[in-house]
Amino acid sequence: MDLTTLVKDDKMIIYLSGEIDHHTSREIRDGVDRLIITHRPKAFILDLSGVDFMDSSGLGLVLGRFRKIKELGGEMYIANAGDRTMKILKMAGVDKIIKSVECRITNQE
């Protein structure tokens, strides 16, 4: 899984793509956490538009990052989750505690 990152001022967007399961989530978590600790963003946006499979391991990943960002005094947002991904997030009530925003990674942002 490749992590595409955009950092501007105190904002950071990470774009995830591929499948998030128990096998892949550890590597993603380590990569995302390294970036969070390096940049300490005030606003952290997790772009899920490229995720084509996610199970409960993905929930653990998202909730874990939410807690981490909170600890560091930032806010976390979810962007562009597909229908399937959103269905899983809603089952755990994640949509109620992490706000969804719309965003695109472009050079203009």
């Binding site: 391991s57 929930l59 874990g64 755990a92």
Partner: peptide, 22 residues
């Protein structure tokens, strides 16, 4: 039960059986 995880560490969400049922 939803949100119950037998594994205290490793960020398990405890939603596995709920998802299977749903």
């Amino acid at each position: 039960q939803p949100m119950y995880s037998g594994s205290g560490s490793d960020e398990r969400s405890g939603m596995g059986f709920s998802i299977m049922g749903c």
